[in-house]
Design a protein around this nucleic acid. Structure first.
Lengths: 189, 189
DNA sequence: ACGTTACCAGACAGATCTGTCTATTATCGG
DNA sequence: CCGATAATAGACAGATCTGTCTGGTAACGT
């Protein structure tokens, strides 16, 4: 019964541990394959604590998606200033770098959407938000680059982006890396 | 008690009813969201019958994938003879047609892969088979068209193909249809 | 010093899922 | 006509999943 060794203040707060663990497991194994019990066990959190922070699993999934979106937006915002076209190439180069990692399991948004068929579901709406942001990012960079027809080209870049995240997961990443830059160059031409 | 009204010979055999029902439900709602109980109920089949035909759910999923692959190969083989470049455009036009349907829920292979993280799993290997076939199809058509660098361009077409199936599921299909032909044309240039 | 807040441990209920098993019925080949 | 085959209905076991609830503990602010 002795007090647990914990100096709890040193650890991350419970909510953050839950979200971190959920993010890791959901991404690596899929949303429906990972149960709440496993998340609370690996997060080292009591069940009541989880349900104090989140109304239920769906809400945790929604936060998983929005947090991941926030992370990507922050990363993008932190890119060094550069000509818009360079930034576009840098974005795709970064995708290729991440996609080459052995832990790469595809795009968390695309993968999660595959498990939530109803487009009206809050999880899907969070995914839609992220995709709207990304399309807008492409569009704004193309406009800044003076590209004619920024709308349509942003659509093509979304196509390539989605193709890359799927391909890096399911095909040979090294072959794909070479293809990627070529495809982006052709698309921006 | 009274025989059931069945003239069983008139109906599709049980195995086909199982596969049809599984295909419909897996595609519409996702693999892990659909239980065996529901499949046998909607297929109008006894539980023992299911386990007589399939060793377990994973094997049913594998057959779902291979049957879907076979269906696409048969459809492709049945295309009217045409110059290879026309056939390529026809393939993408067909994707756009299918992707515009309100029941469209993305690519069954991509969606199923999202629920099977282990690349060594038989289900994933069946998906790999299908993707190899599709890449080979693009490659052969490009070679027949006299395209230089058929390898790399086939990779780009795979990129576009994957981007389309994701986009038709998650974005506005009508806007995407216009983008698609443009993107294919740019890629084949 | 004390009350509030956050957290922990774990039992519990109710649903659902996979897979096995029994017992029965219908159809077909020979 | 009869045995083999294939299908039916449904009970059952064991696991797992979500969500609730109880009771206790540790740290913090005031």
């Amino acid at each position: 019964m002795p007090a647990q060794t914990t100096e709890r203040r040193r650890e991350k707060p419970a909510r953050a541990r839950i979200l971190d663990t959920a993010t890791r497991l959901f991404y690596a194994e899929g949303v429906h394959s990972v149960g709440i019990d496993r998340i609370i066990a690996e997060a080292g959190v009591a069940k009541a604590t989880f349900y104090n922070h989140f109304p239920g699993k769906d809400d945790l999934v929604r936060h998983y998606v929005t947090e991941e979106s926030l992370r990507q937006r922050t990363l993008t915002a932190g890119l060094p200033a550069a000509p818009p076209r360079d930034t576009l190439h840098a974005l795709f180069a970064y995708m290729c770098e991440v996609g080459g990692s052995p832990a790469y399991r595809g795009c968390p948004f695309v993968n999660t959407a595959a498990e939530y068929p109803d487009p009206a579901h809050p999880v899907r709406q969070a995914i839609d938000d992220h995709r709207r942001w990304m399309r807008g990012l492409f569009h704004d960079l193309l406009v800044a680059d003076g590209h004619p027809d920024a709308d349509r080209t942003a659509g093509i870049l979304m196509l390539l982006r989605d193709g890359l995240v799927v391909g890096f997961d399911l095909d040979d990443p090294s072959a794909l890396r070479a293809t990627a830059r070529e495809a982006v160059t052709r698309a921006l031409r």
